[in-house]
Each structure stands twice: as C-alpha cells, then as structure tokens.
Simulated assay, not measured.
Amino acid sequence: MTAKIGVLTGGGDCSGLNAAIRAVVRSGIAKGYQVIGIQNGWQGLIRSDTIPLTDHSVSGIISRGGTILGTSRTDPVKNSADISEIKRVLEDLGISALVVIGGDGTLRAAHEVSLLGIPLVGIPKTIDNDVFGTDITIGFDTAVFIVTEAIDRLHTTAESHHRIMVLEVMGRRSGRIALAAGIAGGADEILVPEVQVSMDEICRSLNARYRAGKKFSIVVVAEGIRHEDIASTSVPEGDRDECGHEKFVGIGNYLGKELECRLGIETRVTVLGHVQRGGSPTAYDRVLATRLGIAAVDQVFAGNFGCMVGVQGNRIAAAPLESVVQQSKGIDPAEYARAKLVAGIHV
C-alpha cells in the first residue's frame, strides 16, 4: 500500500502558500507518497474534510496567492475531543505524517499535537517574519514588496500637496514589514511595536524636516504599536478573533489626527490592511516556498518529525519545534537604529 502524507495550511493566508503545497505534492509523489490535502487547516482534520492532491491538481498554482486548501484559525489543542478526532481521521485515511504550513500560532499547535504522538513537520509562513528558527518566512517578501510600492506611490502625492502621509501596515507584535518597507521606500518615520517612541519625539523629527525645507513626510506605522496615550486600552472579547487576537481599530487614524492637530500640517492616512496578504507571490517567495516544501518532505521521508524546516544563512535546515515555539523573533534595536540613520532629519 502506498504511504500517505497530509498537508494543511493554518492561520492567516499569505502569498506563497500554493507554491509550498505544490512542492510538497510533487516532491512527495517523487518519493512514492500519496498526498492528501486537508482543507481549512486544523478544522479540516477535525471534520475529515480532505481531498487527494495530484500532479494535475497543483499544476499552475505556483503564481496564485492565497491557498487552494483554505485556512482557518482553529486551535486543535483547546479541546481534547478534537485531538481524539484528529487521530481517528488520520488513522481512517491511512495518513502516516503531516506537513503543517503556518505561522507562530499554527506551529505552536503543531508542536503540542506532535507531543501527543502525531508525526509532523512544520513549514514557516507569515508576512510578519517573526517565527524563530528561520531567517525568513513565506509571504514576507511579497508583503514588503506591496508596502514598498504603496510608499513609492504615496511619495508623489505627499510631495505635490506638501502633506504628511501616514501608512498603517500589518504587524501585531513585530514591525518587520514596517521596518523593511520603510527602509526600501525611504520613509521618514518608522514606528514599530518593539521600540517605544513618544508623540513628542515624532513631532520634533517631522518639524525638523519642515524647518529644513522638506515640505512633506512619509510615516510608516505597524498596526500593533502601543502609543503612550492608548497603552492601557482594553479590548472587549467581542473585538477579538477566534484565537483571542485583538482586532485593531486603526492606530494610523489616531496618529494622523494627532500629527495634524499638533503640527498644523495637512495629514492623510492610508491603511493597507489585507492588501498585504493577497496577490501573486514574488519570485523570491515562490522559490523559498518550493525549497521549504521539498525540505519538509525530505524530513518526513527521513522520519525526522517534530521539527520545522527553515532558512539559516541561506541554507535549509531543520529546527526542533520545541525550540521554535519557545522563542520569538523581534526587531533588534540596533537594526532599528541603523534604519533611523537614513530616515528623516536627526534631532
């Protein structure tokens, strides 16, 4: 009987997921596996919602955004009955191992599931690029490309109207998108959750630009920053998603109003939102996802479970999920300081 492996995508979608699925399927078939697609993340395993994946079914999907398998934010370890159901479904389908493609939440669940005796290998994806154990995650490069393009477009209208343009980007706990795109797009202020900056500091910096004759500014802000004036704001349960994550109400709009009020300069706000998740992946993300998909199947074939494949110094390497989920990867303050050297006017 042909051995079977399952593949699922969990958490938020991003560009490059289909490229990873394609790589898992084609490399799996090459190693003699039958590949089963699990629809809508962990939820699909609980409900036995699966489809067979063949060479034909993944043809042409490398350039498509999103995930052909669908996704959800279901946490399988919240309910012991769900784990029992997952084990039953895997046994009924004859699936001997899983490839789990996800971000920190999905990989954390994968680690806990693996401790309960389910063989699996993780692949890191998240536009935030905050998963420990890999230099870069699937989806990050595409998100940065989209944000950089937005900054480039905002520059021309900001300069024409002598305005401050505030661009709010994704980043719940990590400001890596804001930092990378801010550097690439030549932003004048970059605000990230990892570094506390006061409104007075921001205003002094922007004022210095105007005194120096620069009559416009671009401010990039990650959605998860906690400004001093709203740091104690509580979030009602109704304003959280199924994983308990806060549904942000718009730090960009708050910041824009404050800047216009304090500086007396016309300010406009753009919130990119889910635009950053969608669309075709960049060439880099397609290649990265392909490399990681192949590597995940290699780990399954070798029987090396409970690990995540990632990029370390441009080489593909496996790291134990236990070490991955116990640490976080935020912005190094020194990295932020280097970005400040080339942004705006120094005061």
Score class of each variant (00 low, 15 high):
L292K: 12
A212I: 05
P119S: 06
Y254P: 06
A30Q: 14
I183G: 05
G238S: 11
V77D: 15
I83K: 04
I218F: 01
V35N: 15
E159D: 06
S232Y: 06
L191N: 12
G252K: 10
R172N: 11
I61W: 14
V131R: 12
G186E: 09
Y284W: 12
H245V: 07
R338M: 10
Q312C: 14
G344M: 01
V221N: 07
G279L: 00
G10W: 04
K247P: 00
K329I: 00
F140N: 08
Y210S: 10
V342Y: 15
V220H: 02
G278C: 11
A302P: 00
R173M: 11
E322P: 11
E260N: 12
M308Y: 09
L191C: 13
I138E: 12
I316G: 12
A178E: 02
G32D: 05
E260C: 10
I83N: 02
I230N: 15
R173Y: 10
I61G: 08
S96N: 14
R211W: 03
C261I: 11
R108S: 10
V269Y: 03
H161I: 04
V100D: 06
G186V: 03
V269T: 01
E112Q: 15
V220M: 02
L69Y: 12
R277G: 02
E168S: 03
K215F: 12
R153L: 03
L255Q: 01
S48N: 15
F248K: 14
E237K: 15
E201S: 06
L115D: 11
L69T: 01
H346R: 15
A187N: 03
S80C: 07
D92G: 14
L53H: 13
M170T: 00
Q327E: 10
G224P: 06
G256Y: 01
I123F: 09
R172W: 04
G28R: 02
R176E: 10
E194K: 03
T137E: 00
R47D: 09
S80N: 11
D188N: 11
F216K: 04
M199Q: 02
